[in-house]
């Protein structure tokens, strides 16, 4: 008889509900890899760059917040310093938004992702901030900030199209402005070639001051021992209704420009009191 109903519903496992937290989270960040990176980076952070923080209390200890900082140096030290500082001081993970470019690179892209790097797609930022309530670090200047020549240092570039403001508004989270100095001198660009950059498909192709100190290869990796100072400003809250698809363009641009101005002002202020690039 074909009534032998060896149905599929017979042998089901229960819902595998609470599982051991996997090492690699949904964003590709690995806590164990972060821990390793922190251990390796800690001496550089403490004894080489001698990072110093002000206003760390402005970084929220719970809930989502968009950390917005100025960006500088061929391979910028600001991103690892901010992520390292917050993770070691506040014991909170920080996800760093960056160019899609990273995702295309074998090995480097994977390591970058395990270290907390996330492609700067608006959907990713919104989800991290709103659904997951995480800290997200973004550099609105993008490669326009890091690709500056040494003579243009600390002159903040356009903050994109203000997309970061819109995401924060939609997600209903504050923007925490962060001003950094020392990053520009840790790996200054002396000269850059548009033609080689185009050929290699890179945003810029620099000759760094570091290359004269460490040689052509290491000069793209190792920072000079510039003293890094980080100043966190009070969070900026937006008085708008979250969750909307679009916000008034003018308001978004104004807020973006205002935050850029705040950071620029703070950068200038810190430079004014800086006695030495190396000793701070």
């Amino acid at each position: 008889m074909p009534t032998d109903a060896s149905g599929p519903a017979a042998a089901v496992r229960p819902v595998d509900d609470v599982e051991a937290a996997p090492d690699v989270d949904a964003w590709g960040r690995s806590e164990s890899f972060r821990a390793l990176t922190r251990r390796l980076y800690d001496p550089i952070y403490k004894f080489w760059l001698r990072a110093e923080w002000e206003g760390l209390e402005h970084v929220p200890t719970t809930g989502g917040a968009l950390l917005v900082a100025n960006h500088g140096g061929a391979i910028p030290s600001d991103a690892p310093v901010i992520m390292h500082g917050i993770e070691t001081e506040l014991l909170r993970p920080v996800y760093g938004l960056a160019e899609n470019l990273f995702r295309q690179l074998p090995v480097v892209g994977t390591l970058w992702s395990r270290a907390g790097g996330v492609p700067a797609h608006p959907d990713n930022a919104y989800r991290l901030l709103h659904d997951d309530g995480q800290l997200v670090l973004v550099f609105p200047e993008g490669t326009k900030g890091t690709g500056k020549l040494i003579k243009e240092r600390y002159r903040l570039r356009r903050f994109g199209r203000g997309g970061f403001v819109e995401i924060a508004m939609r997600a209903g989270v504050p923007v925490v402005p962060i001003a950094v100095i020392g990053n520009e001198e840790a790996m200054p660009i002396l000269w850059k070639s548009e033609r080689v950059a185009k050929l290699l498909g890179l945003p810029y192709f620099p000759i760094t001051a570091n290359q004269f100190v460490y040689g052509p290869v290491l000069g793209y990796v190792a920072p000079l021992p510039a003293k890094i100072r980080v100043r966190v400003l009070p969070p900026v809250h937006f008085d708008v209704e979250p969750g909307r698809e679009r916000y008034n363009r003018g308001m978004v641009m104004d807020e973006s420009e205002r935050i850029r101005g705040l950071i620029q002002h703070e950068v200038d202020d810190m430079l004014r009191t800086r006695r030495s690039v190396w000793r701070g």
């Binding site: 949904a26 964003w27 590709g28 899609n100 995702r103 295309q104 996330v118 492609p119 797609h121 608006p122 959907d123 990713n124 989800r127």
Partner: peptide, 12 residues
């Protein structure tokens, strides 16, 4: 693709 969001929504 490399420039995709990490989580596609139904209307993406």
């Amino acid at each position: 693709h490399f420039d995709d969001p990490y989580f596609f929504r139904e209307n993406s």
